[in-house]
Simulated scan of single mutants.
Amino acid sequence: MGNEYRIALAGNPNTGKSTLFNALTGLRQHTGNWAGKTVALAEGSVFFKDKTIHLIDLPGTYSLFSNSTDEEVARNYIVFEKPDVTLVVLDATSLERNFNLALQVLEMTKNVVICINLIDVAEEQGIHINERLLTNRLGVPVIKISARNKKGFPMLLDTIDRIVTGKIECQPVQMKYPDEIEEKIKMIEPKVRQLVGSHISSRWVSLRLLDGDETLLNEINKRMVPEGV
């Protein structure tokens, strides 16, 4: 799209994700429904360094499995629509709980920014977060912000810009599972890779199939497998 990019916003409910979306896009936004779904879709845009950044506010979820329509919609957008960057919004006062979703996203896609919101509230509570240490351990940029005060926005937008222009290369940490699971992944991943190619993380799909996620398999068949195969 030239100088136009799509950024997906993911996060647990009540992390300030929609506050961030509204603060960045202002009046440049609209709401509709996802195709074939009753889930609301909010899209907006922000202009930065001669680029148009389209923001998609995904439904707030605690995970990206197939337990609800919201989870399927958010998961499918990240996996199949392939936004240029996925921005995961975390609550600075509840990082341990919020990181479950963040780690799931890191398994699904490469270009990720971890956005730690409500940093002002956390600091008032005596919580101090070392974003550089987290960046090193996770392999993707970690930015601290306060969406309601618009604190940290220049660095957040600059980081997104540097990812889409290739100045930052994300290398998400790969989660390690018990040996039994890792062995099963090795067994089925080559076959999964034949099916999905480089379009989707074959490791992540393998994990979801081991977990019995039939809705993901149905979605892959619907979107990626030619008729008659």
Rank of each mutant, 00 (worst) to 15 (best):
115 C>V: 10
208 R>V: 03
23 A>W: 10
71 E>K: 10
91 D>W: 12
151 K>A: 07
112 V>T: 08
177 Y>N: 04
25 T>R: 07
14 N>P: 09
186 K>C: 04
47 F>S: 06
204 W>T: 06
208 R>K: 15
46 V>N: 00
200 I>F: 15
58 L>I: 05
213 D>V: 04
169 E>F: 07
88 V>W: 14
60 G>I: 08
96 E>D: 10
171 Q>C: 10
71 E>T: 11
21 F>M: 11
189 E>S: 10
81 E>K: 15
185 I>S: 06
173 V>S: 04
69 T>Q: 14
150 K>L: 08
209 L>G: 03
90 L>V: 09
21 F>A: 10
152 G>N: 05
49 K>P: 00
54 H>M: 09
137 R>P: 01
102 A>R: 06
89 V>L: 00
171 Q>R: 14
97 R>I: 13
213 D>Y: 06
60 G>D: 02
138 L>I: 03
210 L>Y: 11
52 T>Q: 10
201 S>H: 06
81 E>S: 13
97 R>H: 11
203 R>Q: 05
203 R>P: 02
65 F>D: 09
125 Q>E: 09
119 I>G: 01
194 Q>L: 14
43 E>D: 05
194 Q>M: 14
65 F>T: 05
202 S>H: 08
19 T>Q: 01
157 L>A: 12
179 D>T: 14
186 K>F: 12
44 G>W: 01
85 V>K: 12
83 P>T: 08
71 E>N: 01
163 I>S: 11
140 V>S: 07
87 L>T: 03
113 V>T: 09
63 S>Y: 03
76 N>M: 05
21 F>H: 11
105 V>R: 10
144 K>H: 08
13 P>G: 11
8 A>H: 07
159 T>D: 13
44 G>C: 08
140 V>C: 07
78 I>W: 09
187 M>K: 14
63 S>R: 08
152 G>Q: 02
11 G>M: 01
157 L>M: 13
223 R>P: 12
152 G>D: 00
